[in-house]
């Protein structure tokens, strides 16, 4: 589903991501953890085509994000750490805009908007301008818009920040649904308990380098993910 090979991205003299390789298979929820500034967001943004990278290759379903960006972007959805959406639009206008861009039919989008907005209890607020939304509401709208075209791969940067417990629970369920349908999820998080319970695989990044990855059991063994993470952080120091 997603193949990252020797990804390197530099900002000036600083290597934000250094020779990172990861493979994500269909049906997997892949967690991406690391301290602030470790290179998680840079990796995610490179995968979705927002950032141009210096070396390496990113393949989505065998297609390169460099040479076939549109084909890749049609297969994926991205939710950034801060949901900066078009505040001059209402929620429903934004969803229709995203649906138009991804070519979702009128019937499908109507059914999906109804379904997801009801699940997140956002239906009544869809006529409000996004500028009037709280952080949590914007995050819910970003999630609905990401699910709208039924992507095969969803990339999320800290998706649980700002969500209430019910919405967080719902999102976890939706992530599972995508994977059961053959899709995959790649997301970054600082909440290690969530990663431990939710992810099939996990990757730990530090200073732009991948320091450990694999199935949850391979990475943490009998310890907790928190202990392993802190131990690895300590070792690297």
């Amino acid at each position: 589903m997603l193949r990252i090979e020797h990804l390197t991205k530099t900002y000036g003299d600083k290597k934000a991501v250094d020779d990172l390789s990861l493979h994500i298979l269909p049906g997997e929820i892949y967690g991406f953890i690391g301290h602030n500034g470790a290179g998680k967001t840079t990796t995610l943004k490179s995968v979705v085509g927002i950032l141009q990278f210096d070396e390496g290759e990113i393949l989505i379903d065998g297609k390169s994000i460099r040479t076939q960006p549109l084909a890749c972007k049609r297969e994926i959805a991205y939710i950034p750490d801060n949901p900066d959406l078009y505040e001059y639009m209402t929620g429903i206008k934004y969803l229709n805009f995203v649906a138009d861009i991804f070519g979702v039919s009128a019937e499908d989008r109507q059914a999906r908007i109804r379904d997801y907005a009801d699940r997140f209890e956002l239906t009544k607020d869809l006529a409000q301008p996004i500028a009037a939304y709280s952080h949590g509401m914007k995050q819910k709208l970003a999630i609905i818009s990401a699910w709208l075209h039924q992507p095969r791969l969803i990339l999320m940067d800290e998706p649980f920040v700002g969500l209430d417990p019910k919405a967080s629970h719902l999102l976890k369920g939706m992530m599972r649904e995508i994977c059961q349908q053959g899709g995959a999820i790649f997301f970054s998080t600082h909440v290690l308990e969530v990663a431990e319970k939710l992810c099939d695989k996990v990757a730990i990044i530090k200073g732009g380098k991948l320091i450990r990855s694999g199935t949850m059991e391979e990475v943490k063994g009998d310890d907790s993910l928190e202990d392993v993470f802190l131990e690895l952080e300590g070792e690297q120091c």
Partner: peptide, 25 residues
């Protein structure tokens, strides 16, 4: 607070959607 009422929507092409976004802004 204005409450959302579902209405029939139409699918537009990419160029029309992008132009609509610029106009909305």
């Amino acid at each position: 607070r204005k409450e959302y009422r579902e209405t029939r929507t139409r699918r537009h092409g990419v160029s029309r959607a992008l132009l609509g976004r610029e106009m909305a802004h």
